[in-house]
């Protein structure tokens, strides 16, 4: 039964990802006094793209077509680490957060390679900028995990969630506040959202992720876009699981699971509103201010690790 729920929550993270993207888009539109597209719009976009031809540049090698597929496969397998409605996940106890973070790195590695295989200027440009952002984001991401895992005495994501479930919300320590802020900043950077990257831009001065995917079309583009949506969903789910897992089903009953799902959706909606507010109110940072932004995250994560000394007592 636990495994079955594990499969269901993994499928949920994969299949609901475009919906989350649609909801964030709709919320953004409302904040900007626009009507906005339907929240189901990303699904029809994906369907449309899947029906089209895969256009491949004549100079490109097999890497160009393999890259989107690897990116998608890797993010889908990373989903198996994240608890959603129960505290365990498919590989929640078997793999630790280090493996999870490095799995995400495989996707990034191949997306950059695919971008460079296009043979135009934009792919290399996007890859070069993504290398900057992801390199600097890796440290704070892992350090925030380290801080939380030291407090929870467990290196696995499920283990941390189980520990947090046993705590009182009001007892939460400074370590968690610092780590949450760090992971929030890193999640925005990793998912390519404002203020690090503007997902709606096609201006060569500003684009990072869009620069990398510019040469892709049809099913390849669909897989990349879907993978990107899943990545945002996974990162938000991770924030919820690590810092606000309360409501997750302790034992498996229909009522408990329903309640857990409801609580999860409310928390997800809050985060979606948060993302939409940031995207509508903050300007994109200049490229060379991004290191400072991530530097703040790094400093916070270092503080978080140092504070574990006090929190443990």
């Amino acid at each position: 039964m636990t495994v079955l729920i594990g499969v269901v929550q993994a499928l949920f993270l994969v299949l609901a990802a475009p919906l989350l993207k649609g909801i964030v888009g709709r919320l953004k539109a409302r904040f900007q006094k626009r009507q906005g597209a339907s929240i189901w719009r990303p699904y029809s976009d994906l369907l449309k793209l899947f029906r089209k031809d895969d256009l491949v540049p004549p100079t490109a090698s097999w890497v160009f077509r393999a890259a989107p597929r690897i990116v998608f496969a890797v993010i889908v397998s990373a989903v198996a680490f994240i608890p959603v409605i129960q505290s365990s996940a498919l590989v929640g106890h078997k793999g630790d957060f280090i493996l999870f973070v490095y799995l995400l790195a495989i996707g990034r590695f191949f997306l950059m390679l695919g971008a460079m295989d296009g043979g135009s200027a934009f792919g290399g440009m996007g890859a070069s900028r993504d290398a900057l952002v992801s390199t600097l984001a890796e440290g704070p991401l892992l350090l925030a995990f380290v801080a939380v895992s030291i407090v929870a005495h467990s290196p696995t994501i499920s283990g941390i969630v189980q520990w947090t479930l046993g705590q009182n919300f009001f007892d939460i320590s400074a370590v968690h506040i610092l780590a949450f802020t760090t992971l929030g900043i890193v999640a925005l950077a990793e998912a390519g959202r404002m203020p690090v990257d503007n997902p709606a831009t096609h201006l060569e001065l500003t684009m990072i992720h869009e620069g990398m995917v510019l040469e892709f079309s049809g099913p390849s583009l669909a897989l990349i876009e879907w993978a990107n949506a899943i990545r945002l969903n996974v990162l938000l789910a991770l924030l919820i699981a690590l810092f606000a897992p309360w409501g997750m089903a302790a034992e498996i009953t229909w009522g408990g699971l329903g309640l857990a799902l409801g609580a999860y959706l409310v928390k997800l909606l809050v985060l979606a509103v948060f993302v939409a507010v940031i995207e509508s109110s903050v300007a994109k940072l200049r490229m060379y201010l991004v290191p400072d932004f991530l530097g703040v995250a790094t400093a916070l994560s270092i503080l978080a690790v140092i504070f574990t000394m006090i929190a443990k007592r």
């Binding site: 460079m116 892992l142 350090l143 690790v305 140092i306 574990t308």
Partner: peptide, 30 residues
């Protein structure tokens, strides 16, 4: 020791960028 995780992560991130560059520039594109 826990802070060294950050150092190793930075080393890892930089080497990822380094070898994406190496393989991408040498083997991909035109």
């Amino acid at each position: 020791l826990p802070l060294l995780v950050g150092v190793l992560a930075l080393i890892g991130g930089l080497s990822l960028a380094c070898f994406v560059k190496a393989y991408g520039v040498v083997f991909l594109g035109r």
